[in-house]
Measured scan of single mutants.
Amino acid sequence: MDETGKELVLALYDYQEKSPREVTMKKGDILTLLNSTNKDWWKVEVKITVNGKTYERQGAVPAAYVKKL
């Protein structure tokens, strides 16, 4: 869990989004888990830093590609 009490997951593999509802992640990324009720796809929040600014993006990733921490 992070400092706000939200559950975290670890990306076990790289994943490139294939639709606007998904998010890209790299192996080793730590993501915030938002919903894991679907056994195949979990909704997560990814933090992306671009030019020193951090953005948050929500989307789905394959459940088999992440592990709860």
Rank of each mutant, 00 (worst) to 15 (best):
E22I: 04
K47N: 08
V61Y: 02
K6D: 08
E45N: 07
K67Q: 12
Y13D: 06
K26W: 07
Y65W: 06
L10Q: 09
V61M: 03
K18G: 07
E7Y: 11
T49F: 11
T4M: 13
D2W: 13
K39Q: 10
G5N: 12
K47L: 12
D14M: 05
T4L: 12
W41R: 01
P20M: 08
E22V: 04
K6G: 10
G28Y: 05
M25H: 02
I30F: 04
K6I: 11
V46I: 14
Y15S: 00
I48F: 11
Y55D: 03
N38G: 10
M1G: 13
L69K: 03
A60M: 15
V46A: 08
D2L: 14
V66E: 01
D2S: 13
R21W: 15
I48G: 05
T54N: 07
I30N: 00
A64F: 09
P20H: 09
I48L: 10
D29P: 02
A60I: 15
V50Q: 09
L10G: 01
L10K: 07
S19T: 10
K27I: 05
A64Q: 11
P62V: 04
Y65P: 01
Y13H: 10
K18E: 07
E22C: 07
L34N: 01
P20N: 10
E45Q: 12
E22L: 05
K26R: 12
K39R: 11
Y15E: 01
D40H: 14
D29S: 06
T37R: 09
A64C: 15
I30K: 04
N51V: 04
E22D: 04
W41L: 03
V23Q: 01
K67C: 15
G59Q: 01
N38C: 11
P20I: 09
Y65H: 06
S19D: 10
M25T: 01
G5M: 12
P20C: 11
E3T: 14
I48Q: 07
K18R: 14
G5F: 12
E22M: 05
K39W: 06
G28L: 03
K6A: 10
T37M: 10
L33F: 03
E56M: 15
T37F: 08
D14V: 06
L8R: 11
A60G: 07
K27R: 11
R57G: 03
W42D: 00
E56A: 15
K6W: 09
L31K: 01
Q58W: 07
K67Y: 08
E56W: 15
T32F: 09
Y65A: 10
T32Y: 09
A11N: 02
K47Y: 10
Y13L: 09
K68I: 13
A63I: 03
T54Y: 07
E56T: 15
D14L: 05
N51H: 09
Y15N: 01
M25Q: 01
D40I: 14
N35W: 05
R57W: 06
K39M: 10
P62E: 03
L8A: 06
K47T: 14
S36C: 14
Y65V: 06
V9N: 01
K26A: 08
V9C: 13
A11M: 03
N35D: 15
W42K: 00
A63F: 03
L10E: 10
V44T: 00
E3H: 14
V61W: 03
V66R: 00
V61F: 01
Y55H: 08
N51A: 10
R57P: 00
V23P: 01
K6F: 12
D40G: 08
A11F: 04
I30L: 07
V23R: 03
K47E: 07
T32M: 09
K68N: 05
L69V: 09
G59L: 08
L31Y: 09
E45D: 02
K53W: 09
K53R: 13
V50F: 09
K27H: 05
S36Y: 07
K39C: 12
E7D: 10
K39Y: 07
D40Y: 15
E56Y: 15
E3P: 13
L33Q: 00
K53M: 13
A63E: 02
I48N: 06
Y65G: 04
V46K: 13
L34C: 07
A64L: 09
Y15H: 03
A11D: 01
V61T: 01
T32W: 10
V66M: 06
G5V: 12
L69S: 01
Y65S: 08
L33S: 00
N35A: 09
V44P: 00
K67E: 11
K43G: 07
V66Q: 01
N38K: 06
P62D: 03
Y13A: 10
A11S: 04
A60F: 15
Q16E: 14
G52Q: 05
L10R: 09
E17Q: 13
T49A: 07
E7V: 15
Y55V: 11
S36F: 06
L12A: 03
K53V: 14
E7I: 14
S36I: 07
P20K: 09
R57C: 08
K53H: 11
V23G: 00
V50R: 10
N51W: 05
E56C: 15
M1E: 12
V44I: 06
G52V: 03
G28E: 01
T37A: 12
V9F: 04
L34P: 00
I30M: 05
K39G: 09
V23S: 02
T32Q: 08
D2M: 14
T32G: 06
L10T: 05
D14F: 04
E7H: 11
T24K: 03
P62A: 03
A60K: 13
G52W: 03
I48K: 08
E56L: 15
M1Q: 13
Y13C: 15
S36V: 06
V9P: 00
G59P: 01
Y15D: 02
T24E: 01
R21A: 14
V23I: 14
Y55F: 12
V46L: 11
N35E: 15
V50M: 11
W41F: 06
S19W: 05
W41Q: 01
A63W: 04
I30H: 03
W41C: 06
K27Y: 04
P62M: 05
E3C: 15
N38I: 04
G52I: 03
Y13F: 12
E22N: 04
G59W: 07
L34K: 05
G28F: 03
G59V: 06
D2V: 14
A63K: 05
G59Y: 05
E3Q: 14
R57H: 06
K47R: 12
Y55K: 07
L31P: 00
K26Y: 10
K6L: 12
T54I: 11
R21K: 12
E17D: 04
N35S: 12
A64V: 09
K67T: 12
I30G: 00
M1T: 13
Y55S: 08
K27F: 03
E45G: 11
T54H: 08
L33W: 02
T54L: 09
K68W: 06
A64R: 14
E22G: 13
Q58I: 13
D14C: 07
G59T: 01
V46R: 09
T24G: 08
T49C: 15
K26Q: 08
R57N: 03
Y13P: 01
V23E: 00
L8T: 07
E7L: 10
W42N: 00
I48A: 06
S19V: 03
Q58M: 08
Q16H: 12
V9Y: 05
T24F: 04
E7M: 12
Q16N: 13
Y65K: 05
T49N: 10
V61K: 00
Q58C: 11
K68S: 06
V66F: 05
G28T: 02
T24C: 05
S19L: 06
